[in-house]
Design a protein around this nucleic acid. Structure first.
Lengths: 137, 137
DNA sequence: CTATTTGCAAACCCTTTGCGCTGGT
DNA sequence: ACCAGCGCAAAGGGTTTGCAAATAG
């Protein structure tokens, strides 16, 4: 039982993830970490991410189909994805009243849930752009 | 403004999607459609899927990070993904009380939401298998 | 007949894996 | 010294794109 060695790359990856304002995709995380550790390899990020998840230090959320990661310990929360600017925000109140263990109608035992709200963030809602059609040419 | 020609492949794709019991991934959809139309190409499926989404005939949901598609017009619902057998079920009651247009604390204007519950489906909950490790060989 | 649509194959992500070398402990 | 961990590069899986041939209107 010796695993989990302390290496510079893990240190940096953890720091970047903890310092992020929201969830990061693996490539984003890689890019940010490379700012500090230029030689960092892709595989290391994925391996470390997997490790952190197994240890419960981080967990994945799926936003718009893309897996993103955030460090644990920010409490239960969900995300809001802006349809206009694409930014992702964390919501600190949970619109779902489903404690794990709840049995949902039909006999489904709930062990977790993921909620994502889509819409317009305060900034985009303010800039009175009423249309919601993506701009096509 | 002439688009949307009626072709055999689109006809089949639409039929498969509408006849599906739940959301399908693109590869699954492709496979099922090929049963009827052996020569069908991958690209056609993706192109048709994109087209259908633009026309509102279909929409994508993200389950466990995988994009899946379902035909519209089945009403608002969400999904339950079984941690044990991996099957996906449709839930007909919505655990979120957030009509579109709602303004969420902080000024977030909600235009849509996606909810996925994870846990054990009735069948798996019944077969008293407490472990959750996927079976590997 | 003309513009759209198709199938094929190549191109593109993103993620995982194999492998020899580096570096914790 | 030993072995976990690293970087590189190749492999893998899903999705997108370029292009010539096929086809709907």
């Amino acid at each position: 039982m010796s695993s989990a060695r302390q290496t510079r790359q893990r240190e940096v990856i953890v720091q970047v993830l903890q310092g992020a304002e929201g969830p990061l995709s693996a490539p984003e995380l890689l890019a940010r970490a490379q700012a500090t550790l230029p030689g960092l390899g892709t595989a290391t990020v994925y391996r470390t991410l997997k490790l952190m998840q197994e240890e419960g230090q981080a967990h994945a959320v799926h936003l718009d189909g893309e897996p993103m990661y955030e460090s644990s310990g920010r409490g239960h929360h969900h995300h809001f994805s802006c349809n206009s600017c694409g930014k992702v925000f964390s919501l600190h109140s949970c619109p779902v009243a489903l404690p794990n263990g709840t049995v949902y109608p039909g006999g489904f035992v709930v062990e977790g849930h993921e909620v994502t709200l889509y819409g317009r963030c305060p900034a985009c809602a303010a800039s009175a752009v009423p249309a919601s059609q993506p701009v096509l040419t």
